[in-house]
Design a binder for these strands. Sequence first.
DNA 1: AGGTTTCGATACTCAAGGTAGCGCAAATCG
DNA 2: CGATTTGCGCTACCTTGAGTATCGAAACCT
Lengths: 191, 191
Amino acid sequence: MTSTASARPPGRPRSGVDAVVFAATLSTVHELGYARATVDRIAAATGIAKTTIYRRWPSKGALIVACLLDAFGPVPLEGASRAELMSSAIRWIAAKIGEPGVGDAFAGVFSDAVSDPELREILSTRLQDPYRIALQDALGEPENRVLFFIDVVVGTLLHRMGMTGEPMVDADVTALVEMVLPYFAEDAGPA
Amino acid sequence: MTSTASARPPGRPRSGVDAVVFAATLSTVHELGYARATVDRIAAATGIAKTTIYRRWPSKGALIVACLLDAFGPVPLEGASRAELMSSAIRWIAAKIGEPGVGDAFAGVFSDAVSDPELREILSTRLQDPYRIALQDALGEPENRVLFFIDVVVGTLLHRMGMTGEPMVDADVTALVEMVLPYFAEDAGPA
DNA sequence: AGGTTTCGATACTCAAGGTAGCGCAAATCG
DNA sequence: CGATTTGCGCTACCTTGAGTATCGAAACCT
């Protein structure tokens, strides 16, 4: 049966190009930094035309967000205890942000979003919300507490990245875990 | 006596213009956001020529940093106890970042710095270092601990600002204080 | 083959950071 | 007063980078 969305629309099919673009985006950002990683350069690095990139993603910010989504994937919310769960989540995002290009791209798109409400919407909805919801479910915490948790963890990691140009070292990630966990422990919440 | 730096060099003296420019910068950033607060617009808002602004500050980023320095002023490191001291510092910076334009400008210049090593140097040296040193002296903590403290506090506040466009509300600032203080308490430091 | 859609390439618009040069204004020195 | 020195406003300009328009060629379906 021809469903409402026919199995294959007529015309030339889109070439599967996402993976190549994402890889080129991250490596270009890693080599040149966020601002110098222009869409022209990314396109040149893939051999794909710039216009094709703009056919898939409406703006550079949206491209970066898609790239980050692809790089992050789902949160691995594992851990027997609540503490292990939070600890592994913090270490996971810290490791991701430490991957080449990821931290730069994240900090860059984040800063662009400050003065771009549309991009902020994309960032909030596409990137933050899935993780926020997953955390709410896993931890049984209300939205505002999880948002605060994300502000602390991601904000800290990005601030270090932005100030030093280098991701946070392991000892400091451990410090972050040791600071955050007691505050979010079941028996030690806010007054 | 003619000291090495003569009391008044020859030629037309510079007109005192900093205060006007700083005020116009903050209000423009507040109204239009960081990216739309172009140097042209700031100049227009003051009635001062853009070239004059570039004679004082070498780049937009440097202008913003100078503006933030002026807006922040010295840290009021008061408080009888160590806890009061840290708490007041956190609430002070949170309030400053909440002032109109300040948070936007801070987050904006911060993000620009990610891909601009020169600006990062200015930001780190001119803005962060004075407060870092003052905190080291007041708290008697080593540099890396104070840097971590700054990452957590400023990073969290800026992340909230960047994600929502609004400064952190008082309840969350309180949460931040309650989370940070125990970790930095004298009798509960890291292993 | 014919229709439909996508790709690549070129060329373009627009905004913004930053610079150069000119004429004038305001101060000091003699 | 006049000469010099320095700063200001102005206009015009350069460069980069995001995003768009157009057009011919390519790939898929019937």
